[in-house]
Every structure is written in C-alpha cells, then in structure tokens.
Write a protein that binds this DNA or RNA. Structure first.
Lengths: 124, 124
DNA sequence: ATTATTGTATTAAGCGCTTAGAACAATAAT
DNA sequence: ATTATTGTTCTAAGCGCTTAATACAATAAT
C-alpha cells in the first residue's frame, strides 16, 4: 500500500479514504486479513493512535471488523463493499463534473478528454 | 457565491479552492472588483482573519491584487487565469481517473458514464 | 480637514489532530 | 501455565486553525 499524505487534511481522514478505495476496488479482498495496527502505522509513518483512529472509523462504517487478538479483517459482506464502490464512484463523478463544468467544460468535452487522457498529459 | 464548508479541511483552504474555481471559470471576471474582506467573511460566516488568510494566499499566487484602500481585484492577466484553469482541470482529471480506475472502471466505462450522468443519478 | 472605508497586523484563547509513552484486555502460540 | 501478539484506552504535550477583539495604515468620500 502506498501512503502519501497531504498536509491540509487530517491524516486519519486520508487513511480512511485510501483504505476505502482499496477495499472497494478489491485490492483488499473481502474477508482478507489486515496487518496489525502497529505494522500499518509503521508502514505509513504515523503514530499507532492515528492509524487506530482510522481503522476504528472504517469499522464504524462496517468495512472492517476486529477480533480482539486474532487481528482485523475486511468485511466479507460483498453487498457492503459494492455499495461503497458505487457510492465512491458517484461522489467522485459528481465532484469531477461539478468542477469541470465550472471550468467551462461541457459533457462532450469531458468525455473526449477522459478517453484520450494519458498520465503527464498537458492538453486539458 | 455559495459557501459550504466541510469540517475535515481548513476553512481557508476551502475558500482558496472555491475562489480559484470561480476565477478560473470566469464567474469572477478578470479585473473585477472583489467585495471587502469583512463582507466576504460575513457572507461566508467566518472570521475576517480566516477570509484574509485565504485572500492573501490567492494574492501570493497572483490571482488577486489589492490596493490599500480601493479594495481588492481579480488579476486582469488572462494568461494567469487560463493557466490556472488548465492546471485545475488537469488536477481534477488525474484525481478522478485515478480513483475511478481503482474502483474498477475503464476509460470507456468512464466516458460513457460522464456523458450520460445526470444529477441524482444512481447508475454509477 | 474630517470621516468612512478598506486592507493589514497582533494578541489571547479554545479546539482538534498528532505524537510519545505507557498500560490494559483478550487470546493465540509455546 | 507462560509468553507473545493484537486490539484498545489514556494522559500529556505541541502545533495549526479559528475566533474575538482591537488597533493601525492608507486613501476615497464628504
């Protein structure tokens, strides 16, 4: 997992977002084991408390569950994962279209842009 | 101008982002007058210091300029505005495509989605 | 000249985020 | 039984963001 944080948002919120994407995208498989808090914290370069806070939030949202000492697992409820996937996709789309339209791009412009966009592209 | 802030990001940063969109999108015309800090602050429901901080940042980036007592103005340098417009569009696109691909959407899927998306849509 | 407007700066307080350090609780491993 | 692992909780400190209150600086309006 690649952790890069920006400074203008709480780290724990960024962790929640990243892990949501990972789980919803299937890179963390349903039912799969999650590394221990302390390991994740070390890997991400943050305090265990901060990682714990993020994981607790994901638990509150039903994406993770934890057994006192056997560790933490991704939910195996595929419906929950799929719901999050759709919800994230919709939120991203709404945000993107809103911003692009404010910037003067129409739907057709955007669709064309999306299909042809390559990383490092400059013709936005 | 419509101000709605989320709680997990500094208000001043959100103001900067909103005003950038407004300026880059031409809703605040180049050379146009910006309301006084105190008015903007009142309208946005934030402390004048917070608004001042956001405006100072936009000034630092060359999007606004201020004359001691005649008020504040949007830059009339069209090239600067256009550069910001492209930069924002690119950043939004990169973010959007990155997230959507993680969620399992391919370019063609996304393009189709974008063209057909309506507010309140659920088929993401 | 005087007053009002506008941008700018300062200080102090409160709050949330992050860290460090430590401890506790439950159970898997030995 | 004992030990190691893992999740959970707590306290104290530091720092940045926000607010409130106030004042100063420059100039437009009168």
């Amino acid at each position: 997992m690649r952790w890069n944080f920006v400074s203008d948002r709480p780290i724990y919120a960024q962790i929640v977002e990243s892990m949501k994407l990972f789980i919803a995208g299937g890179e963390l498989a349903p039912g799969g084991k999650v590394p221990p808090v302390r390991d994740l914290a070390a890997e991400a370069g943050v305090n265990p408390n901060t990682m714990q806070r993020a994981l607790a939030e994901l638990e509150r949202e039903g994406l993770l569950r934890s057994n006192r000492t056997s560790g933490r697992y991704v939910t195996d409820d595929a419906a929950v994962v799929e719901a999050v996937r759709l919800s994230l996709a919709k939120a991203e789309t709404v945000r993107f279209l809103g911003a692009m339209e404010k910037l003067g791009y129409g739907r057709a412009d955007i669709a064309r842009l999306v299909e042809n966009f390559k990383a490092g592209d400059d013709k936005a």
